[in-house]
Design a binder for these strands. Structure first.
Length: 228
DNA sequence: AATCTGCCCAACCGCGTTGTC
DNA sequence: AGACAACGCGGTTGGGCAGAT
C-alpha cells in the first residue's frame, strides 16, 4: 500500500489567495491545528492543494509573523549567517523568529545582494588579473610586472577576508547531515565562553562584514585599483 | 495623462529528503 | 528493500506597483 497523491491538480485553484480563502484556512488551522497538509484544503473547504495551503500559512497567515522592514542589525546578522550557511534560507530564518525563509531569501536577492556586489566583483577581478599575470609570464620574461602585481595585491587585500572565512568553513567541515546544522546558533558562534576559537571565528565574520561595508563605494574601489 | 522601466514579493515549480507501506 | 507519496526547501517567475520619462 502506498499513499495517494497530494493532489491531481485538476479543478484546483491557483494564483493569489482571496481574503475568503485566507479566512477559511486560518479558521481551520486555529480550530484543528496543523495535522496533515494533504487533507487540510478539503476539510477547510478550499479548492487548493496542500502544498499551496502550507505555503500560504507559513509565509503569510501565521499569527506569529513579524511583518515590516528588516532592521540594520537584522541585515548584518543575515549577512553573517549567509557567510556561514550559504543559501540555506530555512536555517537562516530559524534565527529570526517571525521571519520566513521566503522573506529572507527575497530580501537577500533584492537588497543585500546588491549591497555586497562590490565584494563579489572584487573577487572576480582578482581572478582575471591573476590569470592575466600568469599569461604574461608565459609569453615574455622581459615584461615588467610591477603594475599588475600592485593591482593584484590591492585586490588580494580586499578579498583575503573572504578567503579566510571560506578556509575556516572548510576546516570546520560543516556537515549538513550532522547535528551541527540544526543545533548551531549565532549566539553559540560568538559566545566568549567557548574559548579562543570562537573568538577567532567571530573576528573573521566581523572583519568580513566590515570589509564589505568599507567597499560599498565601488567607484572609489575601482579608482584605487586601476588608476593609482 | 499615457507609457515605460525597474523593483518587490507572493506564489509556483522542481528536486531532494523523509516517512509509510 | 524498494516503491512511492508527502513534505520541505531553494530557485524562479510573473503580476502589481511606484517612479521616471
Amino acid at each position: 500500500m502506498v499513499r495517494k497523491p497530494c493532489c491531481d491538480k485538476v479543478g484546483l485553484k491557483r494564483g493569489p489567495w482571496t481574503s475568503e480563502e485566507d479566512g477559511k484556512l486560518i479558521n481551520f488551522i486555529l480550530n484543528n491545528g496543523i495535522v496533515c497538509w494533504r487533507t487540510t484544503p478539503r476539510l477547510a473547504g478550499l479548492l487548493r492543494c496542500g502544498k499551496s495551503c502550507r505555503l500560504r500559512w507559513v509565509n503569510y497567515l501565521r499569527p506569529d509573523l513579524k511583518r515590516g522592514m528588516f532592521s540594520e542589525s537584522e541585515e548584518n546578522q543575515i549577512i553573517q549567517l549567509h557567510a556561514l550557511l550559504g543559501n540555506r534560507w530555512a536555517k537562516i530564518a530559524s534565527h529570526f523568529p517571525g521571519r520566513t525563509d521566503n522573506e529572507i531569501k527575497n530580501h537577500w536577492n533584492t537588497r543585500i545582494k546588491k549591497r555586497l556586489k562590490p565584494v563579489e566583483d572584487a573577487k572576480k577581478t582578482q581572478e582575471n588579473i591573476s590569470s592575466t599575470v600568469v599569461k604574461d609570464q608565459e609569453q615574455t620574461s622581459e615584461i615588467t610586472l610591477t603594475d599588475n602585481v600592485q593591482s593584484v595585491n590591492v585586490v588580494n587585500e580586499s578579498v583575503n577576508i573572504l578567503d579566510d572565512v571560506e578556509l575556516w568553513l572548510n576546516q570546520e567541515t560543516i556537515d549538513t547531515s550532522s547535528s551541527y546544522g540544526t543545533s548551531f546558533s549565532l549566539e553559540d558562534s560568538v559566545n566568549p565562553s567557548m574559548g579562543e576559537s570562537s573568538n577567532i571565528q567571530e573576528n573573521y565574520v566581523q572583519q568580513w562584514v566590515d570589509s564589505a561595508d568599507s567597499m560599498l563605494s565601488w567607484d572609489a574601489f575601482c579608482d584605487s585599483i586601476f588608476y593609482n
